[in-house]
Design a binder for these strands. Structure first.
Lengths: 228, 228
DNA sequence: ATTACTATCTCACGAGTAC
DNA sequence: TGTACTCGTGAGATAGTAA
């Protein structure tokens, strides 16, 4: 089958824009060349080739030439367009992390239960997290990179506070799914973990609810808003 | 400005489809090559160039390489896509005829008033046409071609009939706009006009309603349903 | 002014292959 | 298995120009 050449896409699209689908539109190769940012000669060749392939028809009345897109031409560019469309639209807006559950340091439970955090969790997340965080060692450096990417997105901000003795840093929360459980991936202003570890909180005990244990492989899916 | 090369469109779209917008996706140049129907070498070059232009990032862990689309890459393909989209969508689904009003042969009035036609006009068009058709001499052969195109579309069919003495052919009607007046372009099974003349009917006297007269330039716009 | 030919150049692609 | 180099070929672009 004679496929539409990739370099003809913009030319055919330009003809569409000029209304050439249902009417013969008068056009010169030099004006078309400008529109597609190519030379007059290139435009001329495009028209010749599109005509040869049966994607357009041309009609000349002396000097001026009119162009119309055929049904075949319409079908062909629609095909390309729908391929692009489905490629772009099926792209999930999810950042995924994969890693292994490791034992927590026990510190998570302590911090989560502090009133300065708990009150904010209740109002901003809608629940007070189970006492204890789930620590996940990321599997690969692509996920460490993904963590940086996620950090650039706005999350639910839990502000830091002071209890008079010491100060506690902020916590940024990103609603996430682990298996079918709603959780939140948290990024901490201060942490003793290295870059390759992330922490999760949830209303319930994540390990129990998901039947996962230390050493289990885990996949965490964080939905993000596509830009624009 | 570094523009996305046209031949990289499908490659970038393919990466999108694989979910490389928000995550580093492991990919081999040979599998990518197959997906875009090019060689492994071509795929490799595409990735190198896309990376060089800042449309993708790559991350290697020993053997395997992961790819992610950058914000810039996303913006660029979105731009191309929206150009195509607007080109296709702004394309009007209208067939336009331009010509000059000529004097009718007086026959139109006679035929339109025949009961065999009038009854059908009333039920199928919703009105009995003004007695008399408006004849338009098409300006250029592109419009004669457009007439053939229109003929391929289904119109409102007024069937032929016989009054015992003679038979009358069918009439195909296409709702059309002349200035701001609702009219119908009619194609006749039998006509004494040549190809370059079309006829219009309307509820009212078209010449009066549009303040046009013999010799006036006229533009007739017939909406058609886009294929699919 | 047009369109489109010929010549020329660039560069996209694939074959072969190093690593 | 991988990626990506070099190199040869030819498609696609522009310049110049004829009609």
């Amino acid at each position: 089958m004679l496929e539409l050449k990739i370099q003809h896409i913009l030319t055919l699209a330009e003809l569409f824009a000029k209304g050439a689908r249902y009417n013969f539109i008068p056009i010169t190769t030099s004006s078309l060349g400008k529109s597609i940012r190519k030379s007059q000669q290139a435009a001329s060749k495009h028209l010749l080739e599109l005509e040869e392939s049966g994607y357009i028809e041309r009609l000349r009345s002396g000097q001026k030439v009119s162009v119309r897109i055929t049904t075949k031409g319409h079908a062909e560019i629609s095909k390309i367009f729908s391929i692009l469309k489905s490629d772009l639209e099926t792209s999930p807006s999810i950042i995924e992390f994969k890693g292994t559950i490791i034992s927590g340091m026990g510190e998570g439970a302590y911090y989560m239960s502090l009133k300065g955090y708990a009150k904010q969790f209740k109002t901003k997340l809608g629940y007070i997290p189970f006492a204890g965080t789930l620590n996940v060692k990321l599997k690969d450096k692509e996920f460490i990179e993904a963590k940086r990417t996620l950090d650039a997105y706005p999350g639910i901000m839990i502000n830091g506070f002071s209890d008079g003795k010491r100060t506690y840093g902020w916590v940024k929360c990103y609603p996430a799914r682990v298996n079918n459980l709603d959780t939140a991936l948290i990024l901490l202003e201060r942490t003793h973990h290295d870059d390759s570890v992330i922490e999760l909180i949830s209303k319930d005990n994540i390990k129990k609810a998901t039947k996962l244990s230390i050493g289990s492989q885990i996949s965490i899916r964080v939905p993000v808003k596509p830009i624009q």
